[in-house]
Structure formats: structure tokens, C-alpha cells
């Protein structure tokens, strides 16, 4: 693997966020939270009712994943990213309360991209389908809320050198809009 990787840790500071540029390959270490469709809906419902979220998301990253069940002795099952646009209806609200990073796969909508710029947040693309490789970087995992949702439960995970690429940066850069230009043949 290439050695021009940026190593970053969570929670993400504004200094780190400013430095990240689209196309940067990063290795992320520290605590992050997992949540996808159903858990996002519940978090937003909780905010609407004026309740606290299962975790303080200030400066944190949410990883969009629904892992396979862990086998005995495993920290977590296979754990690659799910498609992110489905979380677009919820993401802006979470950035408003301090969320600084999201990890998933696929492009985000205009409202989310605008909010990333406004709130200084970053979107990382992880490799869809690389469930075993990514699971290896997850060292601890515990369900912290919505256990009844099974694979969609919200987890607190601790990662070491989780591999991802910066797809949207705080400067408004969007890798999905520029990455292909160099390789397109008309």
C-alpha cells in the first residue's frame, strides 16, 4: 500500500479538518459511532422530542455500517460501508449539533455538501465490499443503543488505522465531481 497516507485520530479537531483535502488517503484511529437508516431515524426523532442522543457527537465521526453478526471470539463481523445517500435526510441536523465526520460509500446530495462546508465537516469514502479488511481495523465494538434493530443497532467502536479516502472536504471539494475527469474518454 502507498506510504502517502495521512494518519488522523478522533475526535477531529478543526486543524485536522482544515488540512484534509479530497483524494487524501487517510488512516483513522480512535472512537467512532456506527449508525445507518433506522438508527438515524430514531436519533432525529429523539432530537425532535428534545431528548439527548445515545452519544455526544461533537467532533465525532459516524460510520454508516450494518455489520454481520460477530462469530464467537470476534470483535465484530464483516463491516464495510453502506450507501450514504440514504442518510442524507438526517445528516444536516447531526452536523448542526457538532458531527464532524461521516464514513460511507457513494456521493452525497447538495444539501449535505453545503452543510459540510458550513459546519466544517468531512465525508470519507470507505471501500464498499471490503468487509473483512475493514473489520480488522475495528478493535472494540459495543452496542450503545437501539439493540432491537439488530445489524442496524448503534455501536461505539474503537478503530486503528481504518482506511478511507477524503471524498468531500471542508473547502467544498467533491471527489465524485472531479475524480473521473482525468480518466474520462469522450
Amino acid at each position: 500500500m502507498s506510504n502517502d497516507m495521512k494518519k488522523i485520530t478522533t475526535p477531529l479537531t478543526s486543524e485536522v479538518l482544515e488540512d484534509l483535502k479530497i483524494g487524501d488517503r487517510v488512516l483513522i484511529s480512535g472512537v467512532m459511532y456506527t449508525s445507518r437508516d433506522a438508527a438515524h431515524k430514531r436519533m432525529l426523532d429523539a432530537l425532535d422530542r428534545g431528548e439527548d442522543l445515545p452519544a455526544d457527537l461533537a467532533g465525532q465521526i459516524i460510520y454508516y455500517v450494518g455489520p454481520t453478526p460477530a462469530k464467537p471470539g470476534e470483535v465484530i463481523g464483516s463491516a464495510g460501508p453502506t450507501t450514504s445517500y440514504r442518510m442524507d435526510p438526517y445528516a444536516v441536523r447531526l452536523m448542526e449539533i457538532g458531527l464532524k465526520g461521516m464514513i460511507g460509500k457513494g456521493a452525497r446530495g447538495p444539501a449535505v455538501i453545503e452543510a459540510m462546508k458550513k459546519h466544517g465537516a468531512v465525508y470519507f469514502a470507505a471501500i464498499g465490499g471490503a468487509g473483512v479488511v475493514i473489520a480488522r481495523s475495528i478493535k472494540e465494538a459495543e452496542v450503545i443503543a437501539y439493540d432491537d434493530l439488530g445489524p442496524e443497532a448503534m455501536r461505539r467502536i474503537v478503530v486503528e488505522e481504518f482506511p478511507a479516502v477524503v471524498a468531500n472536504d471542508v473547502h467544498g471539494g467533491n471527489l465524485y465531481e472531479v475524480g473521473y475527469k482525468e480518466f474520462r474518454k469522450d
Partner: peptide
């Protein structure tokens, strides 16, 4: 890089009998 990681993932899935993707 991505394709190499995907190939490593395929190898590990087979060797360790773990699902290559969490969306089974």
C-alpha cells in the same frame, strides 16, 4: 489501491471463512 484492498479482502474472506461483504 482500492482494487488491491478488494483483492486482499477476497483472499481473507476465503481463508478465514468470513463474509466478504457485510451485506450478505
Amino acid at each position: 489501491d482500492i482494487i488491491e484492498r478488494i483483492r486482499e479482502n477476497v483472499r481473507l474472506g476465503r481463508e478465514e471463512q468470513r463474509p466478504i461483504c457485510q451485506d450478505t
